[in-house]
Simulated assay, not measured.
Amino acid sequence: MNSASEYTCEYVEFWNETLAEKFDRFQDILMNGLSYHSQVPLGRLEVAPGSRILDVGCGWGDTAIALARKTGSEGEVLGMDCVDRFLEDARRRADVAGLTNVRFVGADVERHPFDPEYDLCFSRFGMMFFEHPVVAMRNVHKALKPGGELMFIVWRDIEDNPWLGLPKQVVLDFLPPPGEDARTCGPGPFSMSNPDVVRQQLEIAGFEDIHFERNDGPVEVGDSVENAMRFQLALGPAGEVFREAGEEAERQRPQIEEALRNALSPYEQDGKIVMGSSSWTITARRPAG
């Protein structure tokens, strides 16, 4: 089966060449600090024992492992991600958990040749980054059995996510916004925040029974002000502004870091930086007929 490195999509290359190391560096924040937004929908999700499940953009494997436990030993979970580095951790984590019903494959879900064999497709913050969202949705549609369910989690507007919006505004006080030729991780974390747009995309891709559930809650974005500041300058909207500004950003780094510390300090709770966040849990179904 193809590995992610065999694909030449610009976004896939950017994830593997630039973002993977940064995501690994802040794995605890991204996997555990933001976990509220997967714990709530996964806690409510009912999975029939023996189900076959596809986890899109599975990252370090924590959601795939949770799904493997839900479906039981007779079921099977395939975790798929375009970043090979993430999957190395996922495989180790599954081995430690002693699970034999989950496996991980490096591939670009948008282009992977699926057969209709899955009862459920799940994705936590993976669908937002596809180069061609409708094409990706159509391919996920192909992967599902007739009547199969899609559940995916995406961020709502940046205005509803101060953990990303506030740092971006701080950095923009010093640096210009990224240009049109900026290298990115894909359409971006807020590309599926508009329910009307996403509903239309899903309908074009062939889905029905589409529902949106808002999920608001706290996220931990650092175990200290310093760690939270470094996280924001490495990833997300603030990190993109900083990265694309290049030498000018480095020249102003001391002032920008101090401004971020001042902005994040009021959110400190028991040493951790806790901020507000908001996501959509979106469900849809492949028609049974």
Rank of each mutant, 00 (worst) to 15 (best):
R285V: 15
R103L: 00
P177K: 13
A284P: 11
K70G: 03
A259P: 00
R93A: 05
L45C: 06
E220L: 03
I65C: 00
M128S: 12
P254L: 11
A107P: 01
L260P: 06
T8F: 08
L42F: 08
L19S: 12
R85C: 07
Y36V: 12
R285W: 10
D81R: 09
A143I: 05
E180I: 00
V170L: 06
D84K: 07
S5W: 09
R156M: 09
Q252P: 05
G179Q: 01
G147L: 13
L233C: 03
G148A: 03
S191I: 11
S279L: 10
F23Y: 14
G57N: 08
D24P: 00
Q269P: 00
F174K: 05
A4C: 10
A263I: 04
D270S: 13
D115S: 14
S279N: 08
R92K: 15
V105S: 04
R156G: 12
G239W: 02
R52P: 11
G186E: 02
P187I: 01
A68R: 02
F212R: 02
A234Q: 11
M1E: 02
Q200N: 14
K142H: 09
L78R: 00
R44I: 02
E244V: 15
R285G: 10
H112Y: 15
R103Q: 07
L120A: 04
K22E: 12
A259L: 08
E159A: 14
R199N: 15
H211I: 01
P167L: 01
G33M: 00
E268P: 03
M31L: 11
Y7K: 10
F125W: 15
H132K: 07
A136M: 12
A143Q: 03
Q269T: 12
F86M: 15
A182L: 08
E244T: 15
I282C: 02
S35E: 10
P189C: 07
G271Q: 02
G179K: 09
V105D: 01
E203C: 08
F152R: 03
A143D: 12
V102S: 10
G61Q: 06
F212D: 04
L45M: 15
E240Y: 05
V105W: 01
V134H: 12
I256T: 11
R124Q: 11
I65W: 01
L166S: 01
E131I: 05
M151C: 08
G98C: 04
P116R: 03
I204D: 14
M275Y: 07
Q232S: 14
P237Q: 07
G79W: 06
S5K: 14
E240A: 14
G206D: 13
Y7S: 09
N101H: 04
L166C: 03
D28F: 03
Y11A: 11
C82R: 02
G126I: 00
D108H: 01
G236R: 10
T8S: 14
A20E: 08
F122Q: 06
G148I: 02
D62T: 13
G50L: 03
G148P: 06
L99E: 06
A64S: 15
F242Y: 15
A249R: 13
A228I: 12
K145T: 11
K272P: 03
E257P: 02
I204Y: 13
E149G: 00
E248Q: 11
M80L: 09
F125A: 10
A4H: 00
G165W: 14
A249K: 05
D119S: 05
P237W: 08
R85N: 10
W155V: 05
